[in-house]
Each structure stands twice: as C-alpha cells, then as structure tokens.
C-alpha cells in the first residue's frame, strides 16, 4: 500500500539556476526500508526535506510536482501537521536539539510536549526510548555535552519518542564510527519490524546492502536507479555516480574475472549474498567432481 509518493517533483533552491531535484517520481509502500544514495549534492537531502514538508514550506524556492503522504498533499498541511506522520532526523545531530531544554531527558520529551502528550505517558515514553538507545546514563546531562555518537543517538531518540509512522533520516551516520553506524541500522531494522516506514539518505553502501529493502540512487538531481540493493549496488553505472561498489561486490568481481564466481549468478552486494554465492559455487564444484 502506497504511503509516501512524489509525483514529478522538481525543486530549485532560491537563487539557484539548476534544480536540486528534477522530475522525481517515487512510490514508497508502508513498512518499506528505503535507502537513498548518491554523491554529494545529488539531491538526497533535498528529497528528505521535501518528504518532511520543509520544502516548500520553509524555503522560498521554486517547486513543481507534488509530495503526498497517505494521499494528502504536503502543500495543504503545515510542517507541524506533517510531523505527526513523519519524523525527520537531520544530518548534524547538534542542530536537532531544541536549544531550550537542559537535559537529555527533557530534550526527548520536547516533541511530546509540543503534541500535548500527558505527563505520565511522556515520562514512560521517554524512559523507553532512552533505554532503546542506551542513553539512560546520560539522562541528566546537557544535550550539548554529549559525544558526537551520543548526540546522533539522541537525535534519533527525539524523533522516535513521538512515534511517527514514517522516519526519514538525512545521513545519520556521518559522525558515527562503524560500530555506531551499525547500531543505528539495527535500531532502524527493529522499527521496520514494528511496521514503520524507514527512508534513509546514506552513503555507506555496505550497510545499505545489508539492511535496506530498496535503494534509490540519485545523480545530479535525477533518480537514476531504483531497485533491490543487489540490483542497484552491483550496477555497472555506480562508478559513474561517483559511488564505489561494496567490498563484497569488488571481491566477487575479482573472483568472476578468475572464473571463480558462478557464471549465471548476479554479483553480491552484502556479506550474506557473497557467502551464498560461494556456497553455490562449492556445491556445483563438488557435484562436477
């Protein structure tokens, strides 16, 4: 069932001559885990902003086309109204902080206060979310005194606390180490299992390959690839988009050149796919011998 849709979306930032998004049409189903990838300035963040209604409501650029959430046009709703359905996590975690709350606990509660959630319910919800992100011990600290990784988790927690049906994340792992980035994706997978729709702008293709159901690749404002991770991330077009194949694809390419990868099998993008491919080759080899 389609939950989020862009219909021939084109957007130009104020003062810019070239569009940040050009004729982008996407349909995203409820419960999908979609990764949006591409080089810098390819349109990933702009797409995230368009989903959240930041574009066109907070920027006076030129927009054509529509963005629909559950069939309703974002233009007809305020950003606050859209936020009831969709939560946006910004790229710089410090910017996600309200600036008017003194502790991590209060920061997480901020969105709930704005939605008029009763205090008792708020306390319970904040505690649950802090536990989910391993931030209980930081509850009394100032949000501005957390490490980059902790701030990133807090940014996610603030969005998750209000329980939106769609979560849009604009490169949330930029300031995280590999372990921290993996943790974010693990949490997102759990949320997807709970029925949330996840849309993440991301350049770590290894993680996308493992966790996403679908990948959208952008190049200079245009959607150029749309498909399952294995299809998109092993595409020969990827280097043209200034993206590198995952290490698993690269290893399989070398194996393929040496005739060690099963001929009719698509190249892998993730570890699991690589193992599958190698197991298949082993079975074929054993059978022939």
């Amino acid at each position: 069932m389609i939950q989020l849709e862009t219909d021939h979306l084109t957007y130009l930032y104020p003062g810019s001559e070239s569009p940040a998004l050009h004729e982008v049409s996407i349909k995203i189903n409820r419960g999908e885990f979609v990764a949006v990838t591409g080089a810098n300035n390819s349109g990933k963040s702009t797409l995230c902003y368009a989903f959240a209604g930041v574009i066109p409501h907070l920027y006076n650029g030129h927009m054509k086309g529509r963005v629909l959430i559950d069939g309703q046009d974002n233009k007809d709703r305020t950003v606050s109204e859209i936020a009831r359905h969709l939560g946006l996590v910004l790229q710089i975690p410090g910017s996600q902080m309200s600036g008017v709350r003194y502790t991590v606990f209060e920061e997480v509660a901020f969105g709930l206060e704005n939605r008029g959630v009763p205090r008792e319910q708020m306390l319970e919800r904040v505690q649950t979310v802090l536990a989910l992100f391993g931030l209980e011990e930081q509850a009394t600290r100032s949000p501005f005194h957390l490490s980059g990784g902790q701030q990133q988790r807090l940014a996610l927690a603030t969005v998750l606390a209000v329980d939106p049906a769609i979560i849009v994340l604009d490169e949330p792992t930029t300031f995280l180490d590999p372990q921290g980035a993996k943790l974010v994706f693990e949490i997102l997978r759990k949320l997807q299992q709970q029925g949330k729709t996840i849309i993440i702008a991301e350049q770590r293709l290894d993680l996308i390959a493992t966790y996403a159901d679908r990948v959208l690749a952008f190049d200079r404002a245009k959607l150029v690839l749309d498909g399952i991770p294995r299809e998109v991330l092993t595409s020969a077009m990827l280097p043209d988009l200034k993206l590198k194949h995952t290490r698993y694809t690269q290893v399989a390419q070398v194996l393929q050149q040496k005739g060690l990868w099963p001929d009719k099998l698509t190249l892998p993008a993730s570890l699991a796919e690589t193992v599958d491919g190698l197991s298949l080759r082993r079975k074929t080899h054993d059978y022939l011998c």
Binding site: V54, A83, N114
Partner: peptide, 10 residues
C-alpha cells in the same frame, strides 16, 4: 528546521 519538524509551532 528541527524546531518546525518537532512540532514547536503546533
């Protein structure tokens, strides 16, 4: 942007 998307002006 963050304040808007967190419903501050709700």
């Amino acid at each position: 942007i963050a304040l808007e998307v967190r419903g501050f002006k709700s």
